[in-house]
């Protein structure tokens, strides 16, 4: 089927079918994103961009906002429980947000096909990263912090809720960390993704932050870094309420249910399911970008 035929077919359907389908798709994405421990934004953009009739510009706009809202919904609890550090989030978020603006602005100058192709490659890389990511119990190597991290007081302690033990942390490699978050911010802004998939390894493997604190602070960072990118998309005109609102509500409701199912669902099965989803959506959007599957 040609692209023009697809547009004609989707245009002929009643308008209300798509927002309802979007709500239910996003509800499922919200559930599996929580169960798999990855952000909803990284699933939303390739899946909705591939299987719904909306242009990628509007899907990316909704994706930025969706990642922002999901991160904000989780942030208060993480901060109160001490599982996210505002002190750690502030400097890396500043680097990330400057570059997320640049990524968002640059995205409107890139042809859609090129954006789809590079998004497909990125999603396939994320799927590979997910496949080979360390188990959640992995511990980052934490040698002594550097002078820059010490000057900012990037150290502290938190109580691990799994075993009730007090754990100390001290950041290292702050400058490479800032560069990493700048790059992640740019990619997030460019594609309208949340960046939990990259933030956690940057915190954990690069800066030596314990994995639980890295995961919690990553959400806090997304809630800061995606805010200026959201403004850029919003003021550029890349947000359609009929896409944004059902997506937000579906993902938020799904995440709420996902959190309740967290203890009873087999995490390994869900992880495999999400991996398959990422591989399929990544391949689809890549082929779409290459003009091989419209």
């Amino acid at each position: 089927m040609h692209a023009a035929d697809t547009v004609a077919t989707t245009a002929a359907l009643a308008w209300w079918i798509w927002p309802i389908a979007l709500f239910f798709a996003c509800f499922l994405l919200g559930v599996v994103a929580v169960l798999a421990g990855i952000g909803g934004g990284v699933l939303f953009v390739p899946i909705v961009g591939s299987f719904f009739p909306f242009h990628l510009d509007f899907v990316r706009g909704a994706g930025v906002l969706l990642a922002l809202a999901a991160a904000m919904a989780a942030a208060p609890r993480l901060l109160r429980d001490g599982l996210a550090s505002l002190r750690l989030a502030i400097p890396v978020s500043l680097a990330g947000s400057v570059f997320s603006i640049l990524g968002a602005l640059a995205s409107f100058a890139v042809p859609t096909r090129a954006l789809e192709t590079s998004l497909g490659i990125l999603i396939l890389m994320i799927a590979t990263l997910t496949l080979f990511a360390p188990a959640t119990s992995a511990v980052a190597r934490g040698d002594s912090g550097d002078d820059w991290a010490a000057a900012l007081g990037l150290h502290g302690s938190y109580v691990d809720p799994a075993n009730g033990e007090h754990a100390q942390w001290q950041a290292r490699r702050l400058l490479p960390g800032l560069i990493a978050f700048a790059v992640i911010g740019f990619i997030g802004g460019l594609f309208g993704l949340g960046a939990g998939w990259a933030n956690v390894p940057a915190f954990s493997l690069l800066m030596g932050i314990p994995l639980k604190l890295a995961a919690g602070t990553s959400g806090l960072v997304i809630s800061v870094v995606n805010a200026p990118a959201a403004w850029v998309y919003f003021l550029e005109g890349a947000m359609l309420p009929i896409i944004v609102a059902p997506s937000l509500l579906g993902v938020m409701l799904g995440a709420h249910i996902g959190a309740r199912l967290f203890r009873v669902m087999p995490a390994a099965t869900i992880r495999l399911f999400v991996l398959a989803l990422l591989l399929f959506a990544g391949t689809r959007v890549l082929l779409k970008g290459l003009g091989l599957w419209n």
């Binding site: 245009a11 242009h55 510009d57 509007f58 890349a238 009929i242």
Partner: peptide
């Protein structure tokens, strides 16, 4: 909307 939301943002505007 179904005839507009598949357009690139600038064309939609």
């Amino acid at each position: 909307l179904p005839g507009l939301w598949s357009l690139p943002m600038k064309d939609y505007l």
